[in-house]
Amino acid sequence: MTASNEPKIWGLHSQDERLLIEKGVVALGWRELGDLSGFPDDREVFKAHFAQIYPHAKKGQIPTSAGMLYRFIHEAQVGDFVVFPSKTSRLIHLGIIEGGYSYDHVALEYVHQRQVRWVNKLPRTAFSQGALYEIGSFLSFFLVKNYADEFLAAFDKNFKPFSAETEDETIGATAEEIVESTKDFILKELSKHLKGYELEEFVADLLRVMGYRTTVSAKGGDSGIDIVAYKDELPPRILVQVKSGQGDITEATIQSLKGAMREGDYGLFVTLADYKKKAARYLEATPIIRGINGTELVELILKYYEDLDDKYQRLIPLKKVYIPVPLAD
Rank of each mutant, 00 (worst) to 15 (best):
D80E: 07
I135L: 00
V111R: 15
V82N: 03
I92P: 01
L94F: 09
F141E: 07
V82C: 09
E98P: 00
T64M: 14
P40F: 04
A66C: 04
I62N: 02
R117L: 15
V144K: 06
A148W: 01
N146A: 07
Q61M: 09
H112R: 06
G136P: 11
N146S: 10
E44W: 04
M68R: 11
H112A: 09
F141N: 08
T64S: 15
T88D: 13
A66G: 03
M68V: 01
L108F: 08
Y70K: 05
E109I: 15
V78N: 13
L143S: 11
G136Y: 12
Y103E: 01
R114M: 08
Q61F: 00
V82P: 02
R124M: 10
Q52C: 01
T88H: 10
E98W: 01
Q113N: 09
E75H: 06
A66P: 05
N146E: 14
I53K: 12
F127D: 07
F141L: 09
R71P: 02
T125C: 08
Y54Q: 02
V111F: 05
L122A: 07
L108N: 09
L143F: 12
F46T: 04
G136D: 11
V106C: 08
Q115L: 10
P63W: 02
D80C: 01
R114N: 11
E134L: 05
K145Q: 15
G99N: 05
Y147Q: 12
G99M: 02
K59R: 13
E75T: 14
K59D: 05
D104P: 03
G136A: 08
Y147F: 14
E98V: 11
S128N: 11
L143P: 07
S137G: 01
A48F: 05
M68S: 03
L122F: 06
Y147H: 15
S86C: 10
F50L: 05
G67P: 04
G99D: 12
H112F: 12
S140L: 08
A131S: 14
P123Y: 10
S137R: 08
I53D: 05
L143R: 13
G60T: 02
G60P: 00
Q77R: 15
R90S: 12
L122C: 00
I92L: 12
D104Y: 07
P85M: 11
A76D: 02
K121T: 14
F142S: 08
H74D: 01
F46V: 03
G136V: 04
R117I: 06
F72T: 09
T125Q: 12
S137M: 03
G136H: 09
I53L: 04
L94N: 01
L122G: 02
Y110P: 05
G100C: 10
Y103C: 03
I96H: 00
E44S: 10
H49S: 10
F127M: 06
Q113D: 00
F46R: 01
G100W: 09
I62E: 02
T64W: 05
Q113P: 02
P40Y: 00
A148V: 13
D104F: 08
Q77G: 05
V106T: 15
I97K: 06
I97M: 12
I73L: 14
T88P: 00
L139D: 15
R114F: 12
I97L: 12
I96M: 13
H93F: 15
E134N: 11
I53N: 09
T64G: 07
K87W: 07
G100Y: 13
T88A: 11
V119H: 04
Q115P: 04
A131L: 09
R124W: 02
A148I: 08
G67F: 10
A48N: 12
H105V: 13
Y110F: 15
V82R: 00
